[in-house]
């Protein structure tokens, strides 16, 4: 009975994953991706990791998928309800997917996984482990994320300043040139 849930989730996840890359429409692809991420959370919940499941939904469906949607909305011209997804490297994509699959499959098959189910860990234990045993790793990740945020701001800023400067320097001489020619 409980295995049935796994197969149901896994099958649905596979379908949505395939639909992400097969969709002609960018928005539909993002929506399929959101469904896939939601189903992944379902798998986590099935594996007795409710905290991971909750965080998965909060960050991936609520954060990542929403940001993608935002990107589509802001960058596309809104002439119709569809935003075409261009995909002209099918062969490379299939090869890359198969390669990753082979790598992961061998890694999983070669690892000696415990037969018994993993002891369920409460959120309190999880928190203690993060801020105690793995404090260094935790802080390193925080620092990395901070660097990423600062980097994003710097990249966004610099391009803005540059375009303004180049525009200024490009327009000024051209006006002068135009005048001299006219004269």
């Amino acid at each position: 009975m409980s295995n049935a849930w796994f197969w149901l989730l896994a099958a649905a996840l596979c379908v949505s994953a395939v639909m992400v890359v097969r969709s002609r429409d960018l928005v539909r692809a993002v929506l399929w991706l959101a469904l896939g991420l939601l189903l992944t959370a379902g798998l986590y919940a099935y594996l007795d990791a409710p905290f991971l499941a909750g965080v998965q939904v909060l960050t991936y469906v609520g954060g990542v998928a929403t940001l993608m949607v935002f990107g589509v909305m802001v960058t596309r011209r809104h002439t119709s309800a569809s935003a075409e997804a261009s995909n002209d490297s099918n062969a490379v994509g299939v090869l890359a997917a198969l390669g990753v699959f082979a790598l992961l499959a061998t890694a999983i098959l070669k690892t000696d996984l415990p037969e018994s189910s993993v002891p369920t860990q409460t959120t309190a234990e999880l928190g203690r482990a993060l801020l105690d045993t793995y404090l260094l790793a935790f802080e390193a990740v925080s620092l990395l994320l901070l660097a990423a945020i600062v980097g994003a701001v710097v990249i966004a800023r610099r391009r803005d300043v540059e375009t303004r400067e180049t525009r200024g320097s490009a327009t000024l001489p051209s006006i002068q040139v135009g005048r001299t020619e006219a004269e």
């Binding site: 929506l31 959101a34 939601l38 959370a41 409710p50 905290f51 909750g54 965080v55 939904v57 909060l58 469906v61 609520g62 954060g63 998928a65 929403t66 949607v69 959120t123």
Partner: peptide, 15 residues
């Protein structure tokens, strides 16, 4: 994880 569940549902509401 009731509170987490609530926040997660709230996040999905955007879709």
């Amino acid at each position: 994880l009731g509170v987490l569940y609530l926040l997660a549902i709230g996040a999905v509401t955007v879709m």
